[in-house]
Nucleic acid binder design. Structure first.
Lengths: 213, 213
DNA sequence: CGCCTGAAAAGTGTATACAGTATACACGTG
DNA sequence: CACGTGTATACTGTATACACTTTTCAGGCG
């Protein structure tokens, strides 16, 4: 039930049902889920450590507010991690892992542009598989922690995937991995993440102000 | 009281009172601290997310066991983060921050070699200040998360600080920061962390087997 | 009309109770 | 003598109760 509360809250936040800054009441959420406060509390604390909610002592939980400055910081760290992941993957990836990556890019091409959630899911899988191919589980863990925070940002930035450049960059990364060119893979991954950061920040500037979901 | 339970457990684990693999009983710990199970549970879950304890569903909590392979992974990621931190610090550090760093190195020289805990504390402060001088709070957060796991390793590796090379490497980093040479700072920080990793792994091999603290 | 005050409502933090489950140990069986 | 089974104990996960704090809102005062 803790897991259920966690997943429900996470989904509510990422899908935009709960806007940033919204207060989350333990009794309220517990009743709406038909469970007691205990698992709700534990779910909130987990989300707090993941950076999706803010927990002030004695004053309850709120959905976290993220500033553009913070988005920039997170993407810069992600670029660092993903570049290293790509470098290691070029050295350590197995044949099966390379095929799985290739398969995801083919799947992305097959998905119609209007099915945004599906695109996002496969895109996410591609990057996760890339990091796992590094064979450094600590790197993967840190990366996933960072991404759960990033999800907050992308929630309302729909339609920005499948930019023309994105597809080309994905293939550049894969090609470098297949040719075992570590430095080239790192550069390509870094460029991809930083390019995406600019797209996100631009879209945010157009549609919002100092903060958003 | 959650904080008290958290700090008590953390200290017990890092000081070696609780050895890796030891089962931690919620009722037992609650009684020994004179509090109820609720805050104990919450502390255990926090420690679980920080990587100090392992939490198997329905089967309670154990102090986590770390393998040399994992130590290598963690230090490699730390080297990556700290190199980036040093690079950014060379660009962004304020005068006051540079002075604080210098002060820590002077303090390290003043501490007698036998006061190991004090040395470790100041050494920790130096590295934390270095990362904070990067002015990227996300980078700092990820770094601190990683280090709390590392603390497990160093707990029983006393006497390995103040290796002759350590002092020199610290000063190399600081010098690069003062001269605003970003790439040199990154290289120096990376070399320092990786060197330290080798020292730790060597010490572990001498005194242990496949796993320790 | 605005601001301060104070009481009521809601909420957080901790303790405790209870149901379901894993673990350990002893006994019986092959 | 080894192994499986059954029972008793201990523990985890969830629910509920209670004290204390924060928030809210209405009424009175300046």
């Amino acid at each position: 039930m803790r897991e259920a509360a966690y997943l429900h809250l996470r989904e509510s936040i990422l899908s935009g049902i709960l806007l940033p800054g919204t207060r989350i009441s333990e009794p309220g959420l517990a009743e709406s889920l038909g469970i007691s406060r205990t698992p709700v509390r534990e779910a909130l604390q987990r989300l707090s450590q993941e950076g999706l909610v803010e927990l002030s002592p004695g004053r309850g939980a709120r959905v976290r507010v993220i500033t553009p400055q913070e988005v920039r910081e997170v993407y810069e760290v992600r670029a660092l991690l993903e570049a290293e992941g790509a470098r290691l993957a070029a050295l350590n990836a197995t044949g099966a892992e390379l095929e799985a990556l290739e398969e995801r890019l083919e799947a992305l091409d097959r998905i119609p542009a209007e099915q945004y959630p599906e695109q996002m899911r496969v895109d996410f899988e591609f990057h996760s598989l890339l990091m796992e191919a590094s064979h450094n589980r600590t790197l993967v863990r840190v990366y996933q922690d960072l991404r759960s925070g990033l999800a907050l940002v992308r929630a309302h930035q729909q339609t920005l995937s499948q930019h023309p450049k994105t597809r080309e960059q994905h293939h550049q990364i894969l090609k470098a991995l297949q040719q075992r060119e570590a430095e080239q893979a790192a550069r390509a991954a870094r460029a991809h993440v930083l390019y995406f950061m600019e797209v996100v920040l631009e879209a945010a500037q157009r549609q919002g102000g100092q903060q958003w979901t």
